[in-house]
């Protein structure tokens, strides 16, 4: 295997997800890092510590904003130049769109949501859980290069202490790929204690029905001595702060107890909380996917159950 691993970066740091995939790929064969955007060369040098003997950097200003399409152009050039037979990505909002755009550009197969990959002989084989994680599938590729998008958090970076030979490269950009522009950015301020440190988390989703209903969860969390978290659906809707979001694009938490209220259990939420010791789910839909991966599933109306629970917890503690 001769793999390129896409290394995403933010504010002068390589992201852990990409470094984890790089460490894994380097343990199987020849893996080179790819860093795109101004400042890329310096960052690319750091890939050596995670097993890359080689790292490619394109510093073009066209790659300054974290937008996918110019990255497809650059990777197309690099795959051509290096004859790589695999291009691997750690899932992120940006990387998913880069990977799929590149698949169409190169007519190359893309397997997503990989939780692991290995070599069988010369063949790359991916492992993924499909259909809401109800089945484990071994996936393969026909043709080259083989593109893989790895589930967030699947691999931790492993520092091996090597150094990478950094090679700069240039890329032309297609007209359409530079049409989108980043015109605004906001980072919501964090207030209160971080949910990452909490032993007990009470999390709410769209099943709450309204932003006001979060007060039910705040009371339960206060009674339990825990923190309140949220799904992307309610954060995107402006019901609860971004800093409390659990999941692929939010925080990864591993409390002793996670009580999910009105949360369907999408994979992108699961990846942020599956490390919890005990997961209790309250959902009125008996078919909700969260019932497949909780320890205790309660089919019922959270508006009935949560206030009672709060009373009983208070009583038990006094």
């Amino acid at each position: 295997m001769k793999a390129l691993v896409f290394l995403e970066h933010h504010e002068g740091q390589l992201e852990k997800g990409g470094l984890g995939v790089l460490s894994k790929a380097a343990s199987l064969g020849d893996a080179a890092g790819v860093v795109l955007g101004p400042g890329a060369a310096e960052l690319a040098a750091r890939a050596g510590a995670f097993g890359a003997a080689k790292a490619y950097a394109c510093e073009d200003e066209a790659l300054a904003a974290a937008l996918p399409q110019p990255r497809v152009d650059a990777l197309e050039v690099l795959v051509e130049k290096t004859r790589a037979d695999a291009v691997l990505f750690a899932a992120s909002v940006l990387a998913a769109d880069v990977a799929a755009g590149l698949a169409a550009r190169l007519e190359a197969g893309l397997n997503w949501d990989l939780t692991d990959f290995e070599l069988r002989g010369d063949e790359l084989v991916g492992k993924r859980q499909a259909l809401g994680d109800t089945v484990l599938v071994d996936v393969g590729w026909t043709g080259s290069p083989r593109l893989g998008l790895v589930r967030a958090g699947a691999f931790d970076p492993v520092e091996s202490g090597g150094s990478a030979d950094v090679e700069a490269f240039e890329s032309p950009f297609s007209g359409f790929s530079s049409l989108s522009a980043l015109i605004g950015q906001s980072v919501e301020a964090t207030s209160g204690p971080s949910i990452e440190d909490a032993d007990i988390i009470v999390a709410g989703g769209r099943g709450l029905g309204s932003p006001e209903a979060f007060s039910l969860l705040e009371e339960l969390a206060a009674a339990l001595g825990g923190a309140v978290a949220a799904t992307r659906a309610v954060v995107d809707a402006g019901w609860y702060p971004y800093s409390t979001q659990v999941g692929q694009t939010g925080k990864t938490v591993s409390p002793k107890l996670y009580i999910a209220c009105g949360i369907s259990g999408a994979i992108q939420h699961k990846v942020g909380m599956q490390g919890a010791g005990t997961i209790i789910a309250i959902n009125k839909d008996p078919n909700a996917p969260i019932f497949d991966f909780c320890d205790v599933g309660v089919v019922g109306d959270l508006h009935q159950i949560v206030p009672k629970l709060t009373e009983l917890v208070r009583a038990a503690r006094s």
């Binding site: 007519e107 190359a108 197969g109 893309l110 397997n111 084989v125 859980q129 994680d133 109800t134 089945v135 484990l136 599938v137 071994d138 996936v139 393969g140 590729w141 026909t142 043709g143 997961i279 019932f291 991966f293 909780c294 320890d295 205790v296 599933g297 309660v298 089919v299 019922g300 109306d301 009935q304 159950i305």
Partner: peptide, 23 residues
């Protein structure tokens, strides 16, 4: 036209015993 294949199917890792309660 597919460039991806399904090689094998198996059971997913399980969290162990689950309790389900109808309220």
């Amino acid at each position: 036209s597919a460039r991806t294949t399904v090689l094998d199917l198996g059971p997913p890792p399980s969290r162990g015993d689950q309790i389900k309660i109808e309220d």
